[in-house]
Design a protein around this nucleic acid. Sequence first.
DNA 1: TCAATAAGTCAAAAAATTATGACTACTCAA
DNA 2: TTGAGTAGTCATAATTTTTTGACTTATTGA
Lengths: 114, 114
Amino acid sequence: MTTQENDILIECPKEYLLKLLTGKWKPCIFRYATQGPVRFGQMVKLLPEATRQGLTNALRELEESDILERRVIKLKPLHVEYHLTELGLEFIPIFKAIEALNLLPVRKNQPLHS
Amino acid sequence: MTTQENDILIECPKEYLLKLLTGKWKPCIFRYATQGPVRFGQMVKLLPEATRQGLTNALRELEESDILERRVIKLKPLHVEYHLTELGLEFIPIFKAIEALNLLPVRKNQPLHS
DNA sequence: TCAATAAGTCAAAAAATTATGACTACTCAA
DNA sequence: TTGAGTAGTCATAATTTTTTGACTTATTGA
């Protein structure tokens, strides 16, 4: 834990939770995880712009925040599944609230001819 | 706009909006702004751990994302007020969802004797 | 004219996050 | 014993975010 998170903790105890879900790949992974258990290689395929390292980091952080649980499945080619925890389930309404917004993420600096 | 935001835009159009509210000081400022217009000096006092530069950056970014509107009040000592925009108002339910969570942000690495 | 108040700006450094590209570890089946 | 599949690690580099600390601008009242 860093000073940064500590500061937010003091000022905005609840908003601190937001930090647990932010980062370049965490929101994407989280959303996939709400559909069912996800696997590393699956994420590599579904998020082709992400690097292995980036996904590993995101998965580790979600695991450390107790949002995902890592389960090794001792089967034929050896699997590892990440499941939403009870805590993880509690974050779903936040994403529901985001999805309820009927806004398109309009970007201000769009290229004129795209 | 950076490549990073663009990537998230592609993968998770809605979650992209989350990015507009993240950063070290933006969530705090946003929440104060939901209580009424906020001023620069007020934030300096309310968020003593933040630097002027940090607050300026956060306010500018919220302004550029069209979440806050900057209004110069030509009064006695010259004021500048930041108001939530219509877009800004639409983010409130997300914070309501966060506040509805009855979780304490329990930290795993708390000091043993605090 | 001078100081006070409000709202900043600026260049540089430090810290945190993310990317690169090669390499590892385990299991199983041929 | 060799190769294929899955799930990574590792050291380093690049990029982005945040901090530092001094400086600026505009208005006003004494």
